[in-house]
């Protein structure tokens, strides 16, 4: 638990997205319907197929402060509520002040503007209640405990790891770097903004199998292959995330802000169980950069990847389908 040298509220702010409207190049506005944002996923998806060229989006926000913030005898003065949008990919920080709905109300609301040119993928949205405490201006007396994600590309408000999946015949692809890999069904490239899975359509029937909705055993093999690919992806992204860490002057690693950070937060509890993620990252980083312990960690990394890829379920389903098929054959 963090220690604060001043009085604070011990409960967080509840922040909700109430609306999202796109501003288009011709000056008109397109209000997005409620499917563009999800409260359980805390995500707003601003990618809409028809309007790739939007200029900005206006997001309507509502924040509820915990009890005690507006008490007359509270140990602070000059209470304000700020919504802050940050984006680690583009070093962007936008702040707006929310307005109190009524005097002494716990409800505050306002709008934040998201400019399309300022974001490549996902930005985070948080709210802070700030006040003057013991003569110090700008103290945060409570904040949101989990950020909202504003995704400028996605069409659906989904959290978690996002992948780019593309298909190409590796041996003749215009992407010449794929040619040396012509003899494998897929490769993974984690060097970009999103992890990319390239599917090799030179493997005959492969893309039909992956794209098909056929029933029976084909379905199960499809599922099995996807989980195999997903295992590869999770393993690759984990390695690329820990392999590319920024380090503080004191040697402790910094959580990346892009998808690498999401991957680490997601997988570290399985890789180094029982530790807080920050401590888990320090341990993994030490193991990788010191002389010992990295090899021993591989089993845990693989375990974390297999769990996320849903391999157990896919294997069990495939086995059951095989048994069923054998039974039908023998009848």
């Amino acid at each position: 638990m963090k220690f604060y040298p001043y009085k604070r509220l011990n409960r967080p702010i509840a922040l909700r997205v109430m609306s999202a409207t796109l501003k288009l190049p011709d000056g008109t506005f397109d209000p997005l319907d409620t499917s563009a944002y999800s409260v359980p996923q805390r995500t707003v998806a601003l990618g809409v197929a028809q309007h790739e060229d939007w200029i900005s989006a206006r997001i309507g926000l509502s924040a509820t402060l915990p009890p005690g913030a507006t008490d007359a005898d509270a140990p602070w003065s000059g209470l304000r509520v700020l919504a802050v949008l940050t984006d680690g990919d583009t070093n962007l920080r936008t702040t707006v002040e929310l307005r109190q709905d009524a005097p002494d109300s716990k409800e505050w609301s306002g709008q934040i503007e998201v400019l399309r040119d300022d974001h490549a993928g996902r930005a985070s949205l948080a709210a802070y209640a700030v006040a003057t405490v013991d003569g110090v201006e700008g103290r945060s007396i409570t904040e949101t405990d989990a950020d909202w994600t504003v995704d400028v590309v996605s069409e659906e408000p989904l959290g978690g790891l996002r992948l780019d999946v593309k298909q190409a015949g590796f041996s003749k692809s215009a992407r010449e770097w794929l040619r040396p890999y012509a003899d494998v069904p897929w490769v993974i490239d984690t060097s970009g903004r999103l992890p990319l899975v390239m599917i090799n359509t030179d493997v005959e029937g492969f893309s039909d199998l992956l794209g098909g909705n056929g029933g029976g055993i084909e379905n199960k093999i499809h599922e099995l292959l996807l989980s195999q690919m997903a295992t590869d992806v999770w393993t690759a992204v984990f390695h690329s995330a820990v392999g590319d860490l920024e380090v503080e002057p004191d040697g402790s690693p910094v959580f990346p802000t892009d998808w690498r950070g999401e991957v680490l937060r997601e997988m570290l509890p399985d890789v180094a169980p029982g530790l807080h993620v920050e401590e888990a990252l320090r341990r993994v980083h030490r193991r990788r950069t010191d002389d010992t312990g990295w090899v021993e960690l591989q089993t845990r990394i693989h375990y974390a990847a297999v769990r996320r890829a849903g391999a157990s379920k896919a294997v069990a389903n495939a086995l059951r389908a095989l048994q069923q098929m054998n039974r039908e054959d023998s009848e």
Partner: peptide, 15 residues
């Protein structure tokens, strides 16, 4: 613990 935006405000960005 201190939100600098609260006392050092910036102009909104103009696209």
């Amino acid at each position: 613990t201190v939100i600098y935006d609260a006392f050092a405000e910036d102009e909104p960005r103009d696209p």
